[in-house]
Amino acid sequence: MLKKVFKSKQAVAGLLIILIVVFIAIFAPWLAPNQPEEINPAKKFTGASLEYPLGTDQLGRCIFSRLIYGARYSLGIAVPVLLVLAVISLLIGTIPPYLGGRFDQLFVVVSDIFMSFPPLLVVLSLVGALGQGILNIMIAVVFSMWVWFAKVVRSYVLLERKQGYIMAAKIAGCSDLKIITRHIIPNILPALLVYFSTGIAGMILMISGFSFLGLGITAGVPEWGAMLSSGKAYLYSHPLLLVYPGLFILFTATGFNLFGEALRDIISPEEV
């Protein structure tokens, strides 16, 4: 499996992009030439220079440093949300179909109701109710996405449960818990990895979209979506303020999508 991943150019390219972004996020204080929130009113909208590699914004802050620190926000929000979603979906996606009966029917009804809201709408209405703030955005995203993640896990579990080896494990006296944790989950994990990888890309887009709308993240924070939002006032005079943060979002999301897609091709080549 790992060998195949390293053989696929697309997977390597995606992985490389992900590693670059993670590297930037971790080593941001060493990579950034200036403090991202340091205001310098005397140097508004300066062009590229040695001191400011991409120039400065409307408050004289170093654009390059802000972009670098932005990686921390994008990954710092998307990765924890994904981990929570992974745990929730593994619990809710595996146990009800395994137990079956009333419990399972209840899950189907509840998920049907939750799936009749577009995720974006759930986040919008929850942020409207809970108020703004990074934590509220994270809660709202988990609340809107759990059902879609759980449904995907569930569909894999339902497929896997019919396999002969599960019956064999049962006959051999394996407990339900052991079958789920030792047999079903390891077998569906590669397929889930594909979903999680493309899911992170979707989440990065969604979260930057919210901070672009001015929901969740306050204006001064060096987050890519928020930078775009404050840059839109300078659409005519300094369009580059809008171009850079978007490129960073595109770059990051492309990395996760490339990797996820390549992984899908490796796992289920018949769908290529």
Binding site: L205, G225, V243, L250, T254
Partner: peptide
């Protein structure tokens, strides 16, 4: 296409 933030696409 699926990685592009659509608000950014709009501005571009």
């Amino acid at each position: 296409g699926i990685s592009i933030p659509n608000f950014w696409l709009g501005f571009i």
